[in-house]
Design a protein around this nucleic acid. Sequence first.
DNA 1: GTCTATAAGATGATAGAC
DNA 2: GTCTATCATCTTATAGAC
Lengths: 210, 210
Amino acid sequence: MSDTRTKLLDAAADIVREQGAAGASARAIAARAGVNQALVFYHFETVRKLIDAACRRAVDEAAGRYREQLAAVTSLVGLLDVGRELHRQERDAGNVALMAQLMSGAGRDPVLAEAARYAMDVWVGEIEPVVERALHDSPLAAAIDTVGLARAVSASFLGLELYEGVDPQGAASALDAVQLLGVLVEVVDDLGPLVRLALRAKLRSLRSGA
Amino acid sequence: MSDTRTKLLDAAADIVREQGAAGASARAIAARAGVNQALVFYHFETVRKLIDAACRRAVDEAAGRYREQLAAVTSLVGLLDVGRELHRQERDAGNVALMAQLMSGAGRDPVLAEAARYAMDVWVGEIEPVVERALHDSPLAAAIDTVGLARAVSASFLGLELYEGVDPQGAASALDAVQLLGVLVEVVDDLGPLVRLALRAKLRSLRSGA
DNA sequence: GTCTATAAGATGATAGAC
DNA sequence: GTCTATCATCTTATAGAC
């Protein structure tokens, strides 16, 4: 692969991370890459397509970096631990911010929307098997949709990342609260059949009540 | 208050909701308001200050619309019910999208960052007393930071809103999963002292283990 | 593949007539 | 308060020399 191509891909991802998709102009990206502005269009046709390609590559790389760690996780608390480590490292790397930028830019750009959907699918695809494994012997397994939970976890981390950009201390306290909820689920797991019965009764009463 | 001023405020909020902060140019806003472009600068000095004012007003109004409903909530499941109703209505009104746009634009604009922080503080201020009330008699009350939980709930809904813009069906299944977690917390509440003991033991073992 | 030059348009913001 | 006209600057994208 051409050197200029990869320089542009790297620079595009960096600019989106730091300035958002709105700030990622052909000139800004080319300047960062140290190449001529016209090469953006020679190699990628449009700015949008460059951003799309750069973000997909960044998401693939980031997901790959955590595949091993996630493969070793067997509990929800373990998942949240990796999530917190991931959050800390990728916040510095800017990769969660990059996803948030894709999502927020999706409204006015179908190419970004496609990239955003791809990014979310990649992460949900990584996390879902972990959730499945963590809840395998749990009394919750029958009640909960693991794909839905994986999506909720991914989306929540996305929201927390956005929040962190605005109020780092607030976001830290929010992460603590989420972690405690994970512990709670494990406690419920430990209590086993007792909870299964109570949960079933609760769900039944809620459904008939609503 | 001048008619033009309010027209511009309304138009600015609408454009941010529909096109994002990046698409909210002086010309676009003025066209939507049906007034001359130069009036943006006469009334608000800069485009940024107009967007800031418009978003703060929109957040205040949206929070006010749910104050009564939130005041009647006494459980976490009830909070999530209101949250889901709020999510459904404000998604159509675009007010959660507006917040997400503020957050994602915060990186490259300190004025937006201030507005974003204000928006988050407003919603956390509304939700925190509800969480406090919902957990008042709970075995979890001693362990959990209610402000942190309120922040986590707000940030998670923000992430879910972003996700919804990209994959509506995926977001719906994520919301279902979150709702089930709320039910779980209530089940734990019903089990009372038993859980309190188990939770304490778990937290102790986690702390000594780490 | 890479460069310069340039077209064609959008942007924030201002000056000055009314 | 509101308008027109305008500046300087930014944008995407292309044509054509090398």
